[in-house]
Simulated assay, not measured.
Amino acid sequence: MQDPIPDTLDWLKAELDDALDEDVELEMSEPALSLELRKLYRRKHPETLDRRTYFTALIQLQAELIKLQDWVVDRGEKVVVLFEGRDSAGKGSAIKRITQRLNPRVCRVVALARPSDRERSQWYFQRYVPHLPAAGEIVLFDRSWYNRAGVERVMGFASEDEVGQFFQDVPEFERMLVRSGIRLIKYWFSITDEEQQLRFLMRIHDPLKQWKLSPMDLQSRVRWEDYTKAKEEMLERTHIPEAPWYIVEGNDKKRARLNCIAHLLGRIPYEDVQREPITLPERVFNPDYERGTLPSDLYVPGRY
């Protein structure tokens, strides 16, 4: 990853001046959140980066992600990134920062709902295969086929025989993907017991984030140790040379996002793609054209 060139500094400053992070949004838009809970979270949460340092690094990394995107399209590469981890570990916020400035036609997110009855009768990996990338695409899985080794196993949705079969199959499945030309990268976002508890409490008391808490999420608190044992066996049995696991320390969300993006960029040997200079063509004026007046009721009311 290269340092930013001087020509980008003015743009970078403008982006920094424009940016708002979640801390600012929290203060402005969540009056129902307990002040005492905020104080508790801040007291127990590790020191984080100041906003300017964080945004400077984030925007520089996002500029590199655009270069990666251009290279993927130009070379016809296929990239798959899996994001796994405990509930509230920060997977979604990291994915959001990766995709924020990218073309959704190139980089897309897959977050599958629970399988249907028909899908449950299929080969386990079948419902994931249609979402794999074609040439020139990046696919980010917000949870993946590793559901079988985690929530399905812990919550009893998969039998021990099915879990055993999964552990037999998944290394070969991933080797097949890699042999087909897919670059497969796997991240596990790790947080402590206490940090997850604090984040769940924040969600419970935040009306804008309560939708993030499902019954499965709440059960994950009860079954913390079961999830820990399942995670340890999963990492041990599926950490293969062709598709190793990478653990992201997630207690500090800002550092987790930056570390994950920087590592992702370092795993792919992308290069700058030379482009022809873009010039804005002159507008064609037709002296006989007269712009019509549209009815006022077609316009959105200007309330702000």
Rank of each mutant, 00 (worst) to 15 (best):
P4C: 03
P6T: 05
T8N: 02
L9M: 08
L9P: 08
K13N: 01
A14S: 12
A14D: 09
D21E: 06
E22A: 15
E22K: 06
V24K: 09
S29T: 15
S34A: 12
E36G: 03
L37W: 01
K39T: 04
Y41D: 04
K44G: 10
H45C: 09
H45A: 14
T48K: 02
F55N: 07
L61W: 06
L65P: 02
K67L: 11
V73N: 11
R75A: 01
K78I: 04
V79N: 03
V81M: 09
E84A: 10
R86P: 10
S88Y: 11
A89M: 09
S93P: 07
A94N: 08
R97A: 14
R97S: 09
R101L: 03
N103R: 14
P104L: 10
R108Q: 14
A113G: 08
E119L: 03
R120C: 13
Q122V: 04
R127H: 07
P130W: 14
P130L: 15
P130M: 13
P133I: 11
A134H: 15
A135M: 08
E137G: 07
S144R: 12
Y146R: 15
V151D: 06
E152R: 07
R153H: 06
V154Q: 00
V163H: 02
E172S: 04
L177Y: 09
L177G: 06
S180Y: 06
L184G: 00
I185N: 06
K186V: 00
Y187S: 00
W188G: 01
S190W: 03
I191K: 06
E194T: 07
R199L: 12
R199H: 13
H205E: 11
P207R: 08
W211D: 11
K212Y: 03
L213Y: 03
D217R: 08
L218C: 04
R221I: 10
R223L: 13
W224R: 00
E225N: 05
K229D: 07
K231M: 05
E232V: 05
L235E: 06
E242Q: 10
E242M: 05
G250Y: 11
D252G: 04
K253G: 00
R255C: 04
A256T: 03
N259I: 07
H263I: 10
L264G: 01
L265N: 08
L265V: 07
G266V: 13
R267H: 01
D272C: 12
Q274W: 03
R275W: 15
I278K: 04
P281T: 09
N286G: 04
P287Q: 12
Y289W: 15
T293H: 12
P295D: 13
S296N: 08
R303G: 02
